[in-house]
């Protein structure tokens, strides 16, 4: 465990908690893509199949449970909470994410570290996490609504990606045979898509700020 990865895990967790608290506090999920949040929950559920079989460390086990619980809590809030669900932009959040799930699964069947259930689902979760932001990106381009996507959320999400890339560079130079090609390549694609999301976030934020200025 290195400080970059620990900080990356912490900023990732904080970004999820910021979103959950924002939705719960404002009782609104306007501008947030339920599909992206469902994909994130699926990422954690398929990545941590080894939760009860492989014990890496207490930290690892606790964090896996927290990631699964917090991502499911967001999906539950957006689907079931009577007040929150009313503010969901159902007719704007129309990205066909089932095709993305299928494409990632086929890719995981072809490209994995070992052809076992656990490894295929692990690779699937890595590919899925890379593209999970797409529905949110499309919704943001359509709605331009950043009320619930606070700047802090975007900041911590970016910090998570940046710190993980530094972690991989650090491990590459300090560990004799650190090879996580699937995670690294997919992580770079994910960071590229996040950069695109941040760009559209900035455009929306700028537009909204202009709109709010006293005429």
């Amino acid at each position: 465990m290195n400080i970059f990865r620990f900080a990356g895990d912490m900023t990732h967790l904080i970004s999820i908690l910021i979103l959950l608290l924002k939705i719960y506090a404002t009782k609104s999920c306007a501008g947030i893509s339920l599909k992206t949040q469902e994909l994130y929950a699926l990422v954690f559920l398929t990545r941590y199949l080894d939760l009860f079989t492989d014990y890496v460390s207490l930290y690892n086990t606790v964090m896996k449970i927290v990631f699964i619980a917090s991502s499911l809590a967001i999906v539950w809030c957006m689907r079931r909470h009577p007040l929150v669900r009313r503010s969901y932009d159902k007719d704007l959040d129309t990205f066909r994410h089932q095709y993305v799930v299928l494409a990632c699964f086929v890719l995981a069947l072809l490209l994995n570290e070992k052809f076992t259930i656990q490894e295929v689902f692990w690779a699937f979760s890595i590919y899925l996490e890379a593209v999970a932001i797409l529905p949110q990106l499309v919704l943001l381009q359509r709605s331009g609504n950043v009320d619930n996507l606070t700047g802090q959320y975007v900041l911590f999400l970016g910090a998570y990606r940046g710190l993980y890339i530094i972690n991989w560079i650090y491990r590459y130079f300090t560990e004799d045979h650190f090879t996580r090609w699937i995670a690294c390549v997919s992580g770079l694609v994910q960071t590229g898509l996040y950069a695109d999301f941040f760009y559209y976030y900035y455009l929306s934020w700028k537009t909204n700020t202009k709109l709010k200025l006293p005429a």
Binding site: M1, H12, D54, K64, R180
Partner: peptide, 10 residues
């Protein structure tokens, strides 16, 4: 060796 295979990243 084995311990490297274990997925230690979240």
């Amino acid at each position: 060796n084995k311990d490297d295979d274990v997925k230690d990243e979240l």
